[in-house]
């Protein structure tokens, strides 16, 4: 699937073994976005010409030349990925430690908000603390993990108490929709549009 990182667009994918990888979202052959590709076993292949890449980013298959062992120079840039507590983390450089852990919380959903973090903070009436933003709507409390994609766009991961039942999770999802509407309203007003 497509995703954003500080180093640009990435193609996130999971091999059959369950291992997650992050590639630069561009096939070096013809520039096609690899996030449109397909996964067989532990290989991500480009939808355009079927060039296949192993988790290390090296090309392992060029279908137009089945007998050819692809040269080592054909590779895609990879980024460091960690799968922690239901959240996938990408590190643009070499990480010094593991990703943060949010004990007792479980992810509900990820959603794109057409607003910056400042507008989200204003909409919640609180500020980010310990890496998370708290939001309470009626009786529902959610914790938000925010990844800025641009000054006016944020990827918002909605977390909730891991003991929540399905009804509470659905309520949390709806609360996050309300927050998005509020933050986007603030963002539009704030830029005078």
């Amino acid at each position: 699937m497509p995703a954003q990182s500080p180093a640009g667009r990435v193609a996130l994918w999971r091999g059959r073994s369950g291992r997650v990888s992050a590639f630069a979202d561009r096939c070096p052959h013809r520039g096609m976005r690899l996030s449109h590709g397909f996964v067989r076993g532990e290989t991500l292949s480009c939808i355009y010409h079927g060039w296949g890449y192993a988790q290390a980013g090296n090309c392992v298959r060029i279908p137009a030349h089945p007998a050819l062992t692809p040269p080592e120079t054909v590779r895609v840039a990879t980024q460091h990925v960690e799968d922690g507590g239901g959240i996938i983390w990408i590190s643009a450089g070499e990480p010094t430690g593991g990703p943060p852990r949010f004990e007792g919380l479980a992810p509900v959903r990820s959603m794109t908000v057409e607003a910056g973090i400042v507008a989200l903070e204003e909409a919640t009436g609180t500020s980010i603390a310990g890496g998370l933003l708290d939001y309470t709507n009626a009786d529902t409390s959610v914790r938000l993990l925010l990844a800025p994609e641009s000054p006016a766009r944020t990827l918002m991961h909605v977390l909730i108490d891991e003991d929540s039942n399905p009804d509470e999770r659905i309520t949390a999802s709806r609360a996050a929709e309300a927050l998005r509407r509020a933050a986007e309203h603030i963002e539009r007003g704030g830029t005078g549009r």
């Binding site: 397909f38 996964v39 067989r40 076993g41 290989t43 939808i47 079927g50 296949g52 298959r61 089945p66």
Partner: peptide, 15 residues
């Protein structure tokens, strides 16, 4: 809407 090529196994080396 392209085919989900992952639903088919990888062709073997002999075709």
């Amino acid at each position: 809407i392209h085919r989900l090529h992952e639903l088919k196994p990888e062709p073997g080396p002999e075709g």
